[in-house]
């Protein structure tokens, strides 16, 4: 009996992200049926896509016990670079996307270099590249908004088998990330490095290469997320991508990723986290909540989720300790 209840408790605690997601969904659904309409759900998925893509990259970095605060600026510069080239030289969307991803790659490379070769802690490195990126973007664009042509915004509205293109891209990114993290040596090494850098080194893991790869993946995904967002918005103003790093980190943490590394997953974790954040925003709009209350309520829900996660870890650790004696 006691062990059954303990089993249930453990099961509940292990699935906090899913339960939070389901709970929020049901609550908003009951408050306004409009929330449950297909159009509204499709919108949530579409809007969650770009944050989700960036959050996937962020998750990979968090798993190595690092952090990337530069993703927002990264998406800004890479989108500005692509947009300016389209404006001046009228290049087509595909080369523009490649330019965008290249800028993101360079961002990732620089972060990786500073973290693994210069041994600067990730928080400081990426805080610096966050400012640098924003400044670079302002310099390139002279702080004015860069408008994208129809050829790009058309992509944002495109559909594949009835599914919006951003959602398809998000799904592909998640699938690839899931395969890399769970089905390749690199992926398992990412977890190992986050779990214990020195232990991983002693176990023969090329820890610098693994860390560097994580920042590069994150950089490329940030620029891809930026491009997806641009395709939906149509223009890039000087505040584009601001605070995105926090949404991405929040999505990863809501999905169960640990800021201390080694714990977390992209699917279902980060996907649920990204959807949850977007769902909260959409739900607040749909229920016509006071505009000034919305950020506070969103913050409260995020806080609650992270609190539950913390409680979960403490309780699971305690349950685990009991188990040690039983096994002995």
């Amino acid at each position: 009996m006691g062990s059954l209840r303990q089993g249930t408790l453990t099961a509940v605690l292990r699935n906090v992200p899913i339960l939070m997601f389901a709970g929020t969904f049901v609550v908003f659904g009951l408050l306004t049926p409009r929330f449950l309409e297909y159009q509204s759900l499709e919108n949530i998925a579409k809007q969650a896509s770009y944050i989700g893509i960036i959050a996937v990259g962020e998750t990979v970095v968090l798993l190595t016990a690092g952090i990337d605060l530069s993703v927002g600026s990264n998406m800004y510069v890479s989108a500005v670079a692509a947009g300016l080239l389209m404006e001046r030289f009228a290049i087509s969307p595909l080369p523009a996307l490649l330019v965008c991803l290249t800028v993101g790659l360079l961002f990732g490379l620089f972060n990786a270099f500073a973290v693994t070769r210069l041994h600067i802690i990730p928080f400081v490195v990426t805080l610096a590249t966050q400012f640098a990126g924003r400044g670079l973007g302002w310099m390139l664009s002279k702080s004015r908004a860069v408008t994208f042509p129809q050829s790009v915004t058309g992509l944002g509205a495109a559909e594949l088998l009835g599914i919006p293109a951003p959602v398809v891209i998000f799904a592909v990114v998640v699938l690839l990330a899931w395969v890399v993290l769970t089905r390749t040596t690199l992926g398992r090494q990412i977890y190992a490095v986050g779990h214990g850098l020195e232990a991983a080194r002693k176990a023969g893991v090329d820890t610098r290469r693994v860390q560097a790869t994580a920042y590069i993946i994150c950089g490329v995904l940030a620029s891809l997320g930026g491009f997806v967002s641009v395709a939906q918005l149509g223009n890039v103003n000087s505040g584009f991508g601001q605070m995105v790093e926090f949404q991405a980190i929040a999505a990863a943490v809501l999905g169960g990723a640990s800021l201390f590394g080694g714990i977390g997953n992209v699917f279902p974790g980060t996907v649920l986290g990204a959807l949850l954040i977007q769902m909260v925003w959409a739900g607040l709009v749909a229920t016509r909540t006071d505009l000034y209350l919305q950020p506070l309520i969103a913050a409260a829900i995020i806080f609650l989720a992270v609190l539950l996660d913390s409680v979960r870890n403490t309780v699971l650790a305690r349950l685990g300790r009991h188990n040690i004696r039983v096994e002995e």
């Binding site: 089905r183 398992r188 214990g196 023969g204």
Partner: peptide, 26 residues
């Protein structure tokens, strides 16, 4: 020097898993 959050499998092969053919897949 074991990674306690990972499986025995992960720990045994962390410096190189057997792969499917020449793909990077485990």
């Amino acid at each position: 020097n074991l990674f306690s959050h990972l499986s025995i499998l992960d720990n045994l092969f962390i410096d190189g898993f057997p792969r499917i053919g020449r793909t990077p897949l485990i």
